[in-house]
Each structure stands twice: as structure tokens, then as C-alpha cells.
Amino acid sequence: MLLVRRLDRGLSSSTLRSTSFCRPSVSGLSRLGFFAARSLPRRTTSTSSSNRRPDSGAMAEYADGVGAWGAWQVEPSKFTQLVVNSMRTLYPEELADRKWDNVGLLVGNSESDAKKLEPTVMVTNDLTFQVAVDAIGQGVSVIVSYHPFIFSGFKSVTNSDPQQATLLQLAKAGVAVYCPHTAVDAAPKGLNTWLADIVAGPHKHTPSVAIPCATAPESHSPAGYGRIGHFEEGAPVSLAEIIKRLALKLGGLKHIMIASPVGSDIKTAKVRSFGVCAGSGYDVLKSADVDLLVMGETSHHSALAAIQQGRILIQVFHSNSERGYLREVLKPSLEKLLKEAEPKAEVIMSEYDADPFKILDVSTLQEA
């Protein structure tokens, strides 16, 4: 018998009797204002997924099948934290220009990941796919990449993007990534101080900061972006000498790009003051009252502006202005700190890290 519920109390009992003992059509029920309650097939009971005993293998590390388990159980790598703390001691993250920069631990790893790897850090200027694969192959636990590996957020992580494909490889292998960038630039004994010392060479000069860092801790003051140097009064330095010293100290460069005012002679020019800023440094130095600007790279229009102001501008390619510092200063400084806590710690340089640009002598090309 079809059960029905009376919705209209105004219906007569005769109408109710007629609908209670016969099977009306759906359209008939609609006209009468009734709702038909149809029986549904009974569901078979199953164990809730939240109570299901986890499989052995990967989940066994976190789930024993008894209590709650989840992401909170993942223990961060102790060695990675040691690397992070050491980098923060050398280059506090407060020194970074966080208005646009992205510094810090950008890719983490777990203690279980680190136990499968060596207590080794690989230092690189740029984290490319080749650098990542090399690090994984050598069992590296942490990569310290000067340039941030991640600048902006992701809405997806797939192998269709080179950066994301690299990230997936690193995450799969359990390799962490720390990026210091402008914290290294601004430190009192950082990248730009090193670059300024190369320009000055053996000559006495008065150093200063181009743009002070307002957030620098007392332990790392004075700090700031870019460096300015003034040679002693009456003792200008040969531009040719500075160029040769830069080429030698920055890795034996054979070519350097230089923009100089119309009519000036590079071979005989003298320099009384200079400003340096590694990487893309023109915006940091454009207001500096100096004869010579030294940077990794700048734009065509910035170079034109400089020579119209009577200044000389040298660019050595972006990463060429940075990589030498990582090898000569950052690597040994970091390794010394790490070994105080972990004697087996080792810091190595990437062999696949290089500036993407090369100067090509077209006369050496031969047609196939």
C-alpha cells in the first residue's frame, strides 16, 4: 500500500480514503497536494575512512592505527635548522629589502628526509634544474641559493613550468632550499663591501653606504644597499687599473662592458670616487655623486643617463658580480659555523652554476 501524508487539512475524509487505498498517478498526487514517500534501497554499512586502519609503508612513520595522526607529526630537519640559524647569524633576514625580496627558508624538509642525506650544503648563485639534479645526485641536504628560488606564489605546481619541475624534484628528494639575497648585499661584511674592496684595491678610501638599511640589527650596523668610496684627496686611481682588477677578481673575465662620456679616453681616465652595487644596481646608485658606477647589469637608458652626467659605468653581467663572493666569503664562513655544531658538515659550490650569457666572437664561427 502506498503511504501518503495529508498536506491540506481541508480535504474530505472520502477523498482521503480514496487516496489511501488506491495508487494514484504522480500528477494526481500533485493536484491533491500530497507528497509521496517512496522507499529507498538500503545502503550497506562500511567502515569510515577516518577510522580505517592505515596501510603499512609510507604511513607507518606517522600512523600506528590507534590514535590521531597528521601533518603536525612531521619533524623539521635539525641540520636544515642549523643551516638556517647559521645563515641568519651571518646575514640576518632583517637586512633584506622585504618590500620586494623573498628571503629565508623557501623549501623545507623533514628529519626523516635528512637522515637519508649527507650533512652537506650546496651553494649556488641561481638554482636551475641542472643545479638541483646535481645536488640530488650528491646527496646534498640543503641548497643555499643566493637568488630566491621562489619570488611569487603558485596556484599550481606542475612539470610544465621549469621552476616548478625543479621544485618537484627537490621536494621528492627531500632537499631544502634557503635564499638570503639582499640580506647578503646589505651586510657590513657582505657582497657589496667585498665588491667595493675590489674596486679600491690597495688604495685608501673612505667607504659609506649608498642607501642605509633602517631595519638592521645593532650587531650588523652600519648596513645598507650599495657602497660608495672616495679615494684620498689628490690621489685618483687609474680606471684601467680598476678594470683589470675587476676582471681578475671576478673570475678571470676576458670582457667587460663599459660606457663612458663622449670624448673620454678609458686608457688614461682617472677615478676619484666610485659606487658599486652587485646585480641590477643602477637604481641604488643613480643618485650617488661619484665618477664611476660598477654593477652587474643595467639598461640601455640607464647607461645613456650616466654618460650624459659625465660618469663612467661598468657592467660585468649580473651573476658575475655576485658569484665570487659566494665562493670566497660565504662558503667558508658558513662551513666554519656549521662545523662548530656538526663536525661532519660540508659546504660545496655548484659546478653547474654560471652566468647565462657569453660573449661570442663571431669570427670564430664556421659554417657547417
Rank of each mutant, 00 (worst) to 15 (best):
L16K: 02
V133K: 05
T182A: 11
F317L: 14
V184A: 08
Q73I: 02
S156R: 15
W69L: 01
R17Q: 12
A96Y: 06
R227S: 09
V175T: 07
P180D: 11
L285T: 04
K99G: 14
I136Y: 05
P148S: 03
S77L: 12
T80Y: 03
L2G: 04
A36E: 06
G226V: 03
V107K: 02
W72V: 12
T193F: 07
K339I: 07
H147N: 12
A240C: 04
K172G: 08
T124M: 04
C213T: 06
Q130K: 14
A71C: 09
L95W: 02
T124Y: 01
W72E: 10
L168A: 12
V290R: 04
S160W: 13
I136M: 12
F357H: 12
Q315I: 01
K358Q: 14
F357I: 15
I150E: 03
D291Y: 11
G70M: 00
G252E: 04
D97L: 10
S46M: 13
L168F: 07
L195C: 01
S30I: 04
A68Q: 10
E118V: 10
H220N: 11
R311T: 01
M87F: 08
S299M: 08
P41G: 12
G104W: 03
S287F: 11
L32C: 06
E61Y: 03
S363D: 09
F151T: 07
I359T: 11
S30T: 09
V142F: 11
E328A: 15
A341P: 03
K267F: 14
E322S: 02
P202Q: 10
V74K: 02
E335L: 08
K344S: 14
P76Y: 04
Y352Q: 09
A341H: 14
T47C: 13
E93I: 00
S25K: 06
E342A: 00
S264H: 14
T45G: 11
D291V: 09
Q308Y: 09
L7A: 06
S50V: 10
I211S: 06
G226H: 01
A60S: 15
G57L: 00
H147F: 09
E232K: 10
M122L: 15
I256E: 05
R23Q: 08
E94H: 10
D55G: 15
K336L: 14
L32Q: 02
Y178H: 11
E218G: 01
S20C: 03
D291L: 07
D355Y: 06
S30V: 06
K286R: 15
T89G: 05
